[in-house]
Write a protein that binds this DNA or RNA. Structure first.
Length: 576
RNA sequence: CGGGGCGUAGCGCAGCCUGGUUAGCGCGCCAGAUUUGGGAUCUGGAGGUCGGUGGUUCGAAUCCACUCGCCCCGACCA
């Protein structure tokens, strides 16, 4: 392409409301423009990169036997009602009515639609296994779209679904996807880590997320440098030192704690207790029911773990009035001793603890000498605690560190959740109807683009990996009006096109500085600079964007030197 | 949803508090000239219902009310 005829609206300054670097650079480099909150237009450069990403995904999915479909984004309510997710998805689902008043929605994911096809067409175990996929738009009415392409309401996802006759088959399909995903991210040049994850509204038993470490991410990953354990903190476990308690009195003792409202305040209050000798009582409304959650005073509740423990569809912290009505005290004086009317979930770190201090459910009073086994009627013990940096690895004797990360893919073992609720069965070898065992696997293509920018940028702009850059090379003649330069550039341009090298030719009549800066900004991996002096010796300059290194080469050698550099850049390298 | 902030030319901003001629500045854009190895210079131009609606006032970008949109911080996910 000739730059003068191609639409690359670069910006000199950062748009004011872009915070994260990928958002700033994609805007400045003329890749995207915003239409609304979490809604972006992809301009030609971005769309070229997106197609490359999609094709890499396509090739790797095809390589594991995936078959590409294209399903509707517009879905009738019925299929979602059958699976039960019409209600579960809540406000995150875009809903609409047709002219007859029938309920429809925009697909957030496609388990339901694919399962509809499976149950209609798959009859026998002999037709299994199947891996079906599509690359398509997903719509999610996010509570808070943010960070440019990182969190949007409409995005492109490769979603695939595996159908097997049994769980052994699912294990194989899951492993195939895991391998395929690794190849995809490797080919896209991303550094990533695979972590254990929380399955959320997808359901199912096991899931892995593919994460890119970046501060722009919204997840936290706990990892052990020693043994390689890695998990989303929504799921992560950790090892913490046991606290040895003193002998407790025969029964809890109530004592006045005027004005003490926090764990912190009670640690310094005369007659109080250290935070790890306190029981923190949190009150949530879980699927309409008021529920208590107990943690050690110095621990934080992880709400994803709350969901895992309770199986909740909806949850929120209870309001102070609701709490007072239920327990007779305000936050700051709450406890679970003697409470029987409500479910009580207790964190495993509290097991066996005694001589603890907690609220007395009477404002300005606490109880000490509490023995959990004796004094509190725990409904269920569960892991509720948020893992923190510096805690012990659950697998080895290493130390965990917690870091921000962005989710770029997620693979789930669904099991029979959808096949059972929607009636997708096949006949097995014994002639029995059995539910198909399913898996579901997603990759956000837009997030691959954005995370590549997060990972590969510098002061001057984007530095895309060769495999997903919109162009392989840019030709920059120093002076558009110099006939010799122009002729050399034109000739090189058509030569490279003939060699199938994707070339952008900056034929604009701009000053060299403008062209160099624009070339750096948009992130083309190689630049060929053609200037008078070197051209007089038959030479041009090849500049590598990522390293900023340049070398002078004979103009006739450019095509094969470039071809070599490009094939090196394309070579898959292990990312994690 | 709760909390904070912002809407003035394509982009970045000033003006608003304390209402008063034709609403400014930088960048970008158009024309011409001189320039051409890291975001040139000069000259001359184009471009704005000041997010919207209603109100107060002789007079509103400016004050008031409502409303829409966007960004950021906390609970959701590719």
């Amino acid at each position: 392409m000739r730059w003068s005829q191609y639409f690359i609206p670069t910006l000199r300054e950062n748009p004011a409301d872009a915070e994260v670097v990928s958002h700033q650079l994609l805007l400045r480099a003329g890749y995207i423009r915003q239409l609304g909150a979490g809604i972006y237009s992809f301009l030609p450069l971005a769309y070229r990169s997106m197609r490359k990403i999609e094709n890499i995904i396509r090739e790797e999915m095809d390589a594991i036997g995936g078959q590409e479909f294209y399903l509707p984004a517009l879905n009738p309510a019925e299929v979602w009602q059958e699976s039960g997710r019409w209600d579960v998805m809540g406000d995150n689902m875009f809903r609409l009515k047709d002219r007859k008043g029938a309920d429809l929605c925009l697909g957030m994911t496609h388990e339901e639609v694919f399962t509809t096809i499976a149950r209609g067409e798959l009859r026998s175990y002999k037709q299994l296994p199947q891996i079906w996929y599509q690359i398509q738009l997903k719509f999610r009415d996010e509570p808070r779209p943010k960070s440019g392409l990182l969190r949007v309401r409409q995005f492109t996802m490769k979603d695939s679904y595996s159908f097997d006759k049994d769980f052994e088959g699912l294990d194989i399909a899951f492993e195939k996807h895991r391998e395929a995903y690794m190849k995809i991210y490797d080919r896209c040049g991303l550094q990533y880590v695979i972590v254990e994850a929380h399955s959320g509204s997808m359901g199912g038993s096991k899931s892995n997320e593919f994460m890119v470490y970046t501060n722009a991410g919204e997840d936290n990953v706990a990892s052990c440098p020693k043994c390689g354990y890695a998990a989303n903190t929504e799921k992560a476990a950790s090892r913490i030192p046991t606290v040895v308690d003193d002998q407790d009195p025969a029964q809890p003792e109530k004592f006045a704690t005027p004005g003490v409202r926090t764990i912190e305040a009670l640690t310094t209050f005369a007659g109080g207790a250290a935070a790890d000798r306190q029981i923190k009582t949190l009150v949530y409304i879980v699927d309409e029911k008021l529920t208590l959650f107990l943690l050690r005073g110095d621990h934080q509740l992880n709400e994803a773990k709350l969901v895992s423990a309770t199986g909740a569809t909806h949850h929120r912290p209870a309001h102070a009035e609701e709490i007072f009505a239920a327990l007779g005290a305000h936050p700051g004086s709450l406890g679970a001793v003697g409470v029987t009317r409500f479910d009580i979930y207790a964190d495993e770190a509290l097991e066996g603890r005694r001589n603890m201090t907690t609220g007395a459910n009477e404002d300005d009073f606490h109880l000490r000498g509490v023995n959990i086994d004796r004094d509190i009627k725990v409904t269920k013990w569960a892991d509720l605690r948020n893992v923190e940096s510096g805690e012990g690895c659950p697998i080895c004797d290493g130390t965990l560190r917690v870091a921000k990360a962005l989710e770029i893919g997620h693979i789930f073992k669904l099991g029979t959740k959808y096949s059972v609720s929607m009636g997708a069965n096949v006949l097995n070898e014994n002639g029995e109807q059995v539910p198909i065992v399913m898996g579901s696997y997603g990759i956000g293509a837009d997030r691959i683009l954005a995370s590549a920018v997060e990972l590969y940028n510098d002061q001057a702009g984007i530095s895309f990996p060769g495999s997903i850059a919109p162009f392989h090379v840019i030709i920059t003649p120093i002076n558009a009006k110099d006939e010799k330069l122009r002729a050399a550039a034109e000739e090189l341009y058509s030569t490279l096109i003939k060699r199938s090298i994707e070339v952008l030719y900056d034929d604009r009549d701009e000053r060299p500085g403008v062209k160099f800066n624009d070339a750096d900004l948009i992130g083309v991996p190689f630049r060929i600079t053609i200037g008078q002096k070197k051209l007089a010796d038959g030479k041009v300059e090849i500049v590598t964007r990522s390293t900023r290194q340049s070398e002078d080469v004979n103009i006739a050698d450019v095509p094969h030197i470039l071809a070599e550099k490009l094939s090196q850049a394309e070579a898959p390298k292990r990312g994690s």
